[in-house]
Write a protein that binds this DNA or RNA. Structure first.
Lengths: 166, 166
DNA sequence: TCACATTGGTTGCATTTCAAAACCGATATT
DNA sequence: AATATCGGTTTTGAAATGCAACCAATGTGA
């Protein structure tokens, strides 16, 4: 794993913070993992409203660090497709922990309660499942292949009025 | 949980990032959890070299958000003692996930390999144990009551040439 | 085919944040 | 009483951020 700047210390937490310790980088990873986003425009359209120059700089940095890959999209060569590397997929437990803390302590969030409950009950299983789905091109909530669909099929969640854990 | 600034979105990950999504805040929490630090001077002396004004601002913010408590130290009234609230203790899984990622992807770290292996093998147990020790005034590595000592006593780790998992 | 729209950036500029050092009041030590 | 320590604040210059305008390459529709 490359690091462009000099390390402040040899602490592994510090290492992680030097790469993704800012208010934006992990939102890009979230967009991929939760919503299957892959292009500059999709990241830019997220609710938090990241500035275009900041987004471009963060994408460069994450590609340079080996967290993302970038390649031209053959269906539309104006677009680049960003995907997670294995190191990027390794950020999934961190993302789930951040989501858990936020859902626990924010007055209000838009996270589905059943999803938070599932992650809280089985964090390791959840991380493994999310990793497998995202690696094979899916995401947690959006697109063709979703974690939600997998859990529904497996009977781990049930549909009546809304989704809930079985 | 209070938030001083306007929320950028209702995403729980975004909520977490708005509070601790900077290169310094989690280092303070790390100093408490891993090394039992509790005062301004102790935080300031950490290897990363945080500036005094930044540290003061982050401590204010974390206290205001309900992650830390601050009270004058009766043994030396020049000092304030900072401790984690329950919400602060809830950050432990996030911290362990950040440490795991850093240790996995940095070329070199100062994290004891046996500790990383333990956290990786039993993340939930590790988080629970760390939480209990830190809540009762201890830390992972330093001071009177440590997680290392607890694991050694329980036989989970063994001492021969260095520590290792049993 | 050719004007026009979209896309992923880059540039310029004003504002905010950060970093480093000096400084300060309160408390502790000798 | 003199001095040192502690937690913070202030000051000042450097860096990062946020915003809008701009641009080249590619795609789209008449």
């Amino acid at each position: 794993m490359k690091h462009s700047q000099a390390r402040r210390s040899l602490c592994p937490i510090n290492f992680t913070l030097e790469l993704v310790g800012d208010p934006w980088s992990l939102l890009v990873v979230r967009d991929i993992v939760y919503f299957g986003k892959r292009t500059f425009g999709e990241f830019h359209s997220s609710a938090e409203g990241i500035a275009r120059n900041i987004l471009a700089e963060r994408l460069d940095r994450l590609v340079g660090a080996g967290v993302l890959t970038r390649r031209p999209l053959e269906s539309d060569r104006r677009k680049q497709e960003y995907r997670l590397t294995e190191a990027g997929l390794d950020l999934i437990p961190l993302l789930l922990a951040a989501a858990d803390w936020g859902a626990a302590h924010a007055d209000e969030t838009d996270a589905p309660p059943w999803w938070i409950a599932y992650v809280r009950a089985s964090p390791t299983d959840a991380a493994d499942l999310v990793r497998e789905v995202v690696r094979s091109g899916g995401s947690i909530f959006s697109g063709e292949q979703t974690v939600v669909e997998r859990l529904t099929r497996s009977g781990a969640i049930r549909i009546d009025d809304g989704l809930r854990l079985s």
